[in-house]
Deep mutational scan, measured.
Amino acid sequence: GYDPNALYCICRQPHNNRFMICCDRCEEWFHGDCVGISEARGRLLERNGEDYICPNCTI
C-alpha cells in the first residue's frame, strides 16, 4: 500500500505532493526539484520515451 511517511530521494523526505520522477535504473523516486528536473521536463522525457537516470546512477 501507499505509505505517506515513506522516505524518498536524496533528501530522504516524504512525497509531500511534490512532483517526483522515478530513476529507470535503480527505480528509486526523486523529488524533481531536488534533482533539477522540472515537471515539464519530466513529462517531455516520458513523451519521448527517454529514461531518467538519477544522480546516484550517473556517477
Rank of each mutant, 00 (worst) to 15 (best):
R25D: 09
G32R: 11
C9A: 01
C34M: 00
L45T: 07
H31P: 00
M20Q: 07
V35C: 07
R43K: 12
E50V: 09
I53M: 15
Y8W: 06
M20H: 03
D24L: 05
N16E: 12
I21S: 03
C54Q: 03
D33T: 10
P55S: 12
C22P: 11
R18F: 04
F19I: 09
E27R: 08
R41P: 14
H15F: 02
D24F: 07
E50K: 11
Q13L: 07
D24W: 04
T58P: 10
E50L: 05
R43G: 13
P55H: 09
F19K: 05
P14L: 11
E39P: 04
C34A: 01
E46T: 13
F19L: 10
R18A: 08
C11K: 02
G1F: 12
I53Y: 14
G32V: 08
I59F: 06
C57W: 00
H31D: 02
W29H: 09
C11V: 00
H31S: 01
T58G: 10
C23T: 00
H31I: 01
C26F: 00
E39Y: 04
Y2K: 15
N17H: 10
A6H: 05
Y2G: 14
C54P: 01
M20E: 03
E46S: 08
C26L: 00
E27W: 07
V35Y: 01
L45Y: 08
A40Q: 03
P4E: 04
N16Q: 11
G32W: 12
C9K: 00
N17G: 11
N16W: 08
E50T: 11
W29V: 15
L7E: 11
M20N: 12
G42W: 15
R18Y: 10
I37S: 06
M20F: 04
E46F: 05
E27V: 05
D51M: 03
R12M: 03
N56I: 04
V35K: 03
F19E: 03
D24K: 15
D24S: 07
C23R: 01
C9Y: 01
E50Q: 15
C23L: 00
Y52W: 13
E39T: 04
R12H: 11
P55C: 07
E28Q: 05
Y2P: 13
A6F: 05
P4L: 11
T58K: 13
R47E: 09
C22D: 14
P14I: 09
C9D: 00
R47Q: 03
P4D: 15
I10D: 02
A40S: 09
L44N: 13
F19R: 06
Y52F: 10
D24R: 14
L45W: 06
N56H: 08
F30M: 10
Q13Y: 05
I53A: 12
H31Q: 01
N56C: 10
P4C: 12
D24A: 14
F30W: 03
W29G: 09
H31Y: 01
P14D: 03
Y8C: 12
I59Q: 06
G49Y: 10
R25E: 14
H31L: 01
R25Y: 14
I59R: 08
S38F: 04
I53K: 15
G32P: 06
L45P: 10
G42L: 12
N56S: 13
R25L: 08
Y52T: 09
L44E: 14
N5F: 05
P55Q: 13
I59L: 07
G36T: 11
I21N: 02
C34I: 01
R12E: 09
I37K: 14
P55I: 06
A40I: 13
H15R: 13
C23E: 00
C22I: 12
C26S: 01
E28P: 01
G49S: 14
I10T: 11
F30C: 07
D33V: 05
I53L: 14
D33F: 04
G36F: 04
M20A: 03
C26D: 01
N5L: 03
P4W: 07
R25S: 09
H31R: 02
P55E: 07
L7W: 08
M20L: 09
E28K: 12
C57T: 02
D33M: 05
I21Y: 11
I53D: 02
I10C: 03
F19G: 04
F30N: 10
C26K: 00
A40R: 05
D3Q: 10
P14G: 11
A40E: 15
D33K: 09
R25F: 08
A6M: 13
G1S: 15
D33L: 08
G49P: 10
G42P: 06
R41V: 12
F30V: 03
A40H: 05
N5G: 04
N16A: 06
R18C: 08
E28S: 07
G32I: 14
E27Y: 10
F30Y: 09
W29K: 15
E39R: 09
G42H: 15
L45Q: 15
C11Y: 00
E27N: 06
C54S: 01
I10S: 11
N5W: 01
C22H: 12
I37T: 12
R12W: 03
C26M: 00
D33C: 10
C57G: 00
I59D: 15
Q13T: 13
H31G: 02
I59M: 11
R43F: 03
E27I: 05
R43E: 14
N16T: 12
Y2F: 15
H31F: 02
L7I: 13
Y2A: 09
W29N: 15
C34V: 01
N5S: 04
L44S: 11
N17S: 07
I53R: 09
L44H: 13
M20C: 04
R25G: 07
T58C: 15
E50S: 05
G42M: 13
I37F: 07
L44F: 13
D3Y: 10
S38V: 12
P4Y: 04
R43H: 14
N5E: 05
C26W: 02
A6C: 02
W29P: 12
D24N: 15
I59V: 15
D3T: 11
L45I: 04
A6K: 02
G49V: 05
M20G: 09
C9N: 00
P55L: 10
E46D: 03
P55T: 13
G32H: 10
C9Q: 02
R41G: 11
C11S: 00
C11D: 03
A40L: 11
Y8N: 15
H15D: 12
I10M: 11
